[in-house]
């Protein structure tokens, strides 16, 4: 069924979902008991709420958990990687921005020698994407992303229900048993938020923010340094390593835990010297990481416009207008004689 498209009429959506649930582990976007919007296991008969705009945490929580045991040490065997064995997990209802974010994380963790902890988790995920309606926090339409919104199956919302696009062998395996609900079509997919991804002509953001220094300082003045903006960002992946010994010292476990570039400790080295002591320097770092990219990913903007950082900032801060202004001023400078 790969590379083919099907119509799923609205009235078949519920039986389609129930049949899908029957295939094994599945998480859907839902409002949980505490009121938070998350990807989580559906309760009996619960349908995915595809009208929800954004979950608190993006999908990185599956691929790169906040605290992840990576190595264990014993006197006999030295350091050994912690094996990860878990069955397939299907995530149903992923927006294009979150799919594009996974493409970005793949570049970080799978390029070169694949990360031994990310790889098995990535392999265990199957992704069903869905088109969405942006709200006031979304910016995928303002700054196009070069990352592809790839997935196994994508659902385009159409008037009569969904157009289901099968995009991988895995997608094929998932959809085959569901074919009674699917009617093949050769109509092209409708316009959607997915069109804001996989784009080649991407803006070249300037290297330095001196043109917008007053805005930068204003932001730095109001920031609480809570780190919410990067905790919830689907393309933020800074981590620290933490090692904990057993009481007798014969065994140890090493964890990878999320770190945060808005924390003062992020650039502090032994002896107390701090390479980013000022908050403006930390914002500058965040800007460079999000809009310019580091190392092998230089030139690849990683913000996918999901809006989580803006929606969750207790101080109401937003880096995007600052980046856009810096971009505008630099392209002005480039075109004017």
């Amino acid at each position: 069924m790969k590379n083919r498209r099907f119509l799923l009429v609205g009235s078949d959506f519920e039986p389609f979902c129930m049949a899908l649930y029957g295939q094994g582990g599945i998480h859907i976007p839902k409002i949980c008991a505490d009121g938070g919007v998350r990807f989580a296991h559906p309760v009996e008969g619960e349908l995915p709420d595809l009208s929800l705009i954004r979950t608190i945490l993006p999908l990185k929580k599956y691929l790169f958990p906040p605290k992840d045991k990576v190595l264990s040490y014993s006197q006999d065997n030295g350091y050994q990687p912690v094996e990860y064995n878990s069955g397939k997990l299907l995530i149903f209802g992923v927006h294009p921005c979150d799919l594009a974010a996974i493409s970005y994380l793949d570049k970080i963790f799978l390029n070169g020698e694949p990360d031994a902890f990310y790889l098995p988790r990535r392999k265990s995920l199957a992704l069903i994407g869905v088109s969405c309606m942006p709200d006031k926090y979304c910016s995928c339409g303002d700054i196009a992303s070069p990352m592809p919104a790839d997935c196994d199956i994508f659902l385009y919302k159409i008037e009569t229900g969904y157009m289901v696009s099968c995009e991988s062998d895995e997608g094929s395996a998932i959809l085959s048993p569901l074919s009674p609900f699917l009617h093949e079509t050769d109509i092209l997919p409708p316009e959607s938020t997915r069109d804001n991804f996989s784009l080649n002509s991407v803006e070249k953001f300037p290297d330095d923010l001196s043109g917008v220094s007053s805005e930068l300082q204003e932001m730095a003045r109001s920031c609480l340094g809570c780190g919410a903006c990067s905790i919830c960002c689907p393309t933020c992946y800074c981590f620290d390593l933490l090692e904990l010994p057993s009481l007798n010292g014969e065994r140890a476990e090493r964890f990878r835990i999320w770190d945060n570039c808005l924390y003062q400790s992020h650039a502090e080295v032994a002896g107390g010297y701090n390479f980013r002591k000022a908050r403006t320097e930390r914002f500058d770092y965040r800007y460079r990481h999000k809009y310019l990219g580091f190392g092998q990913l230089q030139g690849i903007m990683s913000c996918v416009g999901c809006g989580r950082c803006i929606a969750n900032c207790p101080a109401g801060l937003d880096l995007r207008p600052l980046a856009c202004k810096a971009l505008k001023e630099s392209s002005h400078a480039a075109t004017s004689p």
């Binding site: 990360d115 290297d207 800074c238 460079r288 310019l292 990219g293 580091f294 190392g295 092998q296 230089q298």
Partner: peptide
């Protein structure tokens, strides 16, 4: 090159 702590400009 994976923990994003050590950037110098945009180099790691």
């Amino acid at each position: 090159g994976r923990c994003a702590h050590c950037a110098v400009g945009t180099m790691l």
